[in-house]
Simulated scan of single mutants.
Amino acid sequence: MDFFEKSIIELQNQRPIFHSEDDLKLALAFNIKKNNPEFEIRLERPVQLEMINRNGKGIAVRAPIDIIVMDTSGDSYPIELKYKTRKANILHNNENYILAEHGAQDAGRYSFRKDIYRIENYKSSNLNYKYGYVLILTNDNAYFEKNVFKKDNIDKHFSFHNGVILNRSDLSWNYSKLDKSRFIFNENKVWCNIKSKEHWTCSKENFYKLDLLKDYEITWKDFSVIEKTTFKYCLIKIG
C-alpha cells in the first residue's frame, strides 16, 4: 500500500464525508503531510500541457494539478481529484453537510477521462515523475452503477461504471444522438446549430481528443455510508 492509498483508507474513518472538492483536497493533502512530514506538497500547481482538439488543432493550455507531492529524492506524484455529489443534507458529528446537486454526469464522465489524460501528459513531460493518481469520490450512483453505453447516450464512450474497461482510444462523443435537423457538421469539423453556435461538446475543454496510453480497468470501492447515503470511490494509479 502506498502513501496515497493509505491516506484514502485513513480518511474513511476520520472524514467519511466532505463539504466540497476543496474540502477533500485539503483533507488529503493534510493527511499525506501528517504521515510523511518529509514530503513537499503543492496545491493547484499550474503546468503547461499540450492538448489536441478533435479537429486536429493543437493548443497549449495552463492546467493546475490539484495536488503534487514531492519526496526527498525529488520524485513527484501528481494527483487529480473529483468530488461529484447528489443533493443531500447530512448531519455528521454535529456538523451539517449541505451537498450540492452537481448533475451533468455526461460532462463528469468526460472530465474523469480528461484527468487521466492530463496525468499521462504530465508524466511524458516530467523526468522526475514517479506515479500519478486520479481519484473520484461520489454519492451519485449514476457514475458507478449505470452503463450508459447500453443506453446509447451521447457520453456512451466515456462510461466508467464498475467493471468496465476504459478504452485507450477516444471514440468521441456519440454524435449519432444529435438531431441532424438542428445541428450540422461544418467545414471546421465542429457541430453547430443553425445560428452557428457550437454544440457544448465542441467547445473549450469538452472538445479535446483524449487518447490514452493504455486501457484502464475500472473498479469502484466503498468509502462510507452515512444516513443511508452511500459514497464510493474509484482510484486510478498511473505508473
Rank of each mutant, 00 (worst) to 15 (best):
N174W: 06
A27P: 10
L235E: 08
V225P: 00
L24V: 06
D22M: 15
R182F: 15
K156Y: 06
I17H: 01
T138P: 01
P37W: 13
L24W: 03
K209Y: 09
R113E: 06
A107N: 04
E50S: 14
N153D: 13
V148I: 15
S7H: 03
K87P: 08
L171D: 14
A107W: 09
Y129C: 01
N162H: 10
E80T: 06
N162G: 07
K84P: 00
I17Y: 02
K156V: 03
A107K: 07
S125R: 11
N96I: 13
L171C: 13
E145I: 07
N128H: 10
K34P: 10
I184C: 13
G58N: 15
A60M: 13
E50A: 11
I194S: 15
H161V: 01
K189V: 08
I90F: 07
N35M: 13
R62K: 15
R86D: 14
I238R: 02
F112W: 08
I67G: 00
N126F: 03
I119K: 00
N53Y: 15
E21H: 02
R109Y: 12
L49P: 00
I238E: 02
K214F: 07
N94S: 15
K57Y: 15
G163H: 02
D2N: 14
N162W: 03
I165G: 09
N153M: 14
I9V: 15
D66S: 05
D215L: 06
M70P: 09
N147V: 04
F3I: 13
I52G: 00
K123W: 03
I218K: 02
K228L: 08
D155M: 11
K150G: 14
I184S: 11
P16Y: 01
V134N: 00
D22S: 13
N126Q: 08
I116C: 03
E205V: 14
N93Q: 14
F112K: 01
S76I: 08
K221P: 03
E227A: 15
I154Q: 04
D170P: 08
L178T: 06
D115G: 04
D22W: 09
F18K: 00
A104V: 12
K33R: 12
G103P: 06
I9C: 15
F4H: 04
S169R: 11
N139L: 04
R45K: 14
I79S: 01
A60I: 15
L49Y: 01
K114C: 11
P64T: 08
T230C: 11
E187W: 06
L213A: 12
Y83P: 01
Q48N: 13
L178D: 02
K6P: 00
G103K: 04
A107E: 06
K57G: 10
N188F: 10
K146H: 09
N193G: 05
N141H: 06
I41R: 00
N96E: 15
Y216W: 05
F112L: 10
N126R: 08
I52A: 05
I165A: 11
H161M: 02
I116A: 03
K130Q: 13
E227Y: 12
R118T: 03
F185D: 05
S125W: 06
E40L: 09
V164Q: 05
Y77N: 04
E44K: 09
H102E: 14
L210K: 00
L127M: 11
F4W: 09
N53M: 10
E187F: 13
Y83C: 05
D170I: 05
I68L: 02
M70D: 11
N167R: 12
H102Y: 11
N128Q: 12
Y117D: 01
